[in-house]
């Protein structure tokens, strides 16, 4: 959808032409290219929206050096799925409880989207979402991780997240004493 504009406005033309393209091309740290709907990218990512508005999008692939190809593929996949999904009609009209109001529960497809990811892929995606300022994706992925922690013992959580316990027995006892109420039913 190139738009023909008068000569002498090269810069202007370039921007308009770019603004008229439906997609943007993103380049992962390992050099792979991905196309994503410009509308969805601008709507879902504050960083990409800023780049699109500021004209710093490269037609040959905008470099995202911090994001690996697997994570970027998931980001792009999420954007495209989001662009196609019908927003939930329930939204505000249903009597959502007060406490969940600030965060809208993941929709069915979002749940499936994060459920199929391996632990490593999920963590990479969280960091990509954080880097790109994708509030909703960050919320959905963090929600998934919090579900993986819910109701688990410290040992189980350490195992899932590969955390090394570097406390001495005495230190552990001290924390438990200090925050006794939180460990009440242990």
């Amino acid at each position: 959808m190139e738009v023909d504009k008068g000569k002498g406005e090269a810069e202007e033309t370039r921007k308009v032409a770019e603004a008229d393209r439906d997609t943007v091309t993103l380049k992962s740290s390992d050099g792979k290219l991905f196309e994503v709907s410009k509308e969805a990218a601008a709507r879902l990512s504050t960083v990409l929206a800023g780049m699109i508005a500021g004209g710093s999008i490269d037609d040959n692939g905008t470099d995202l050096k911090q994001i690996g190809s697997e994570a970027l593929e998931n980001v792009v996949d999420y954007c495209n799925k989001h662009a196609n999904s019908i927003p939930s009609a329930a939204l505000i009209s249903s009597s959502i409880s007060f406490n969940t109001a600030p965060f809208k529960e993941p929709e069915e497809w979002e749940r499936k989207f994060v459920d199929r990811l391996s632990h490593d892929a999920l963590f990479d995606l969280v960091e990509a979402a954080n880097f790109l300022g994708m509030e909703r994706l960050l919320d959905v992925t963090c929600h998934k991780i919090s579900e993986m922690m819910k109701g688990k013992s410290p040992d189980q959580i350490r195992e899932v997240f590969n955390i090394k316990n570097d406390y001495t027995k005495e230190e552990l006892e001290e924390i438990r004493q200090e925050l006794a109420w939180a460990f009440y039913d242990d």
């Binding site: 922690m149 819910k150 109701g151 410290p154 959580i157 350490r158 997240f161 955390i163 090394k164 316990n165 570097d166 406390y167 552990l172 924390i175 438990r176 925050l179 109420w181 939180a182 460990f183 009440y184």
Partner: peptide, 11 residues
């Protein structure tokens, strides 16, 4: 409560 309990995971 679960948030506070994460304090025992590691330093």
């Amino acid at each position: 409560k679960e948030v506070v309990r994460t304090s025992v995971l590691s330093s």
